[in-house]
Simulated assay, not measured.
Amino acid sequence: MRVFVTATAGAAALALSAGALSAQEVDRTGWPSSFTVGTASQGGTFFVYGSGWANLVAEELGITGAGEVTGGPMQNMALVHTGDLAFGLTTLGPAQESLQGTNPIAPGLEMNNVCAMFPMYQTPFHLAALASEGITSLSEIPDGTVIGFGPAGSSADTYFPAMLEELGVSFERRNGGWDDLGGQMQDGLIDAIGFAAGVPIPTVSQLEVQTDISIVGFTDEELATVTENFPVAEYTVSADTYRTLQEDMTSVAMWNFAIANCDLPESFVYEATRIAMEDNARMVNIHSSAVETLPEHWDKNNVLKWHPGAARWFNENGGASIPDDMIHGG
Rank of each mutant, 00 (worst) to 15 (best):
G38H: 10
E316T: 09
F87S: 01
T236G: 03
H81T: 12
T225Y: 15
S205Y: 11
G50I: 04
D263E: 12
E266W: 02
G176K: 14
T91G: 04
N317R: 09
L138D: 03
N112Y: 02
A128L: 07
E228Q: 14
S214L: 06
T102D: 04
G168P: 11
T70H: 01
S288A: 09
E296L: 08
G30P: 06
A233D: 15
A233R: 15
P202N: 11
G44H: 15
F257T: 02
L164T: 11
T145S: 03
N261P: 00
W306P: 01
V169Y: 06
Y121A: 01
G65C: 10
T39H: 14
V169I: 07
T91C: 07
T244F: 09
A13N: 06
P161H: 09
S238A: 11
A310S: 14
D191I: 00
F171L: 05
A156Q: 10
A13C: 04
K305M: 14
H81C: 04
D325Q: 10
A95I: 03
P265T: 08
A86T: 09
D212H: 13
M74H: 08
S251F: 00
A129G: 08
S288Y: 11
A192K: 01
N261I: 00
V57T: 07
D157V: 08
G329Y: 04
L181N: 01
W306S: 00
G182N: 04
T45K: 02
T225R: 15
M283T: 02
K300M: 12
H126Q: 03
W178L: 01
V169K: 08
G330W: 14
N317I: 05
W31P: 03
I147S: 04
D84F: 12
A23N: 13
S288D: 07
F35M: 11
D84Q: 14
M117V: 10
G176Q: 10
E296M: 10
S251V: 00
T29V: 05
G65M: 12
E60W: 15
L167R: 04
A20H: 14
I141Y: 12
M249S: 03
V146D: 00
R274L: 10
G309N: 08
R282E: 08
G72F: 06
T29C: 06
D191P: 00
F171K: 04
F257M: 05
E172Q: 15
I327M: 05
A224I: 01
Y235S: 02
M277D: 10
A15T: 11
Y159H: 05
A128I: 09
D143I: 02
I322K: 00
V252F: 11
S98L: 12
P202W: 13
G319R: 07
V232D: 07
N76W: 13
E221W: 15
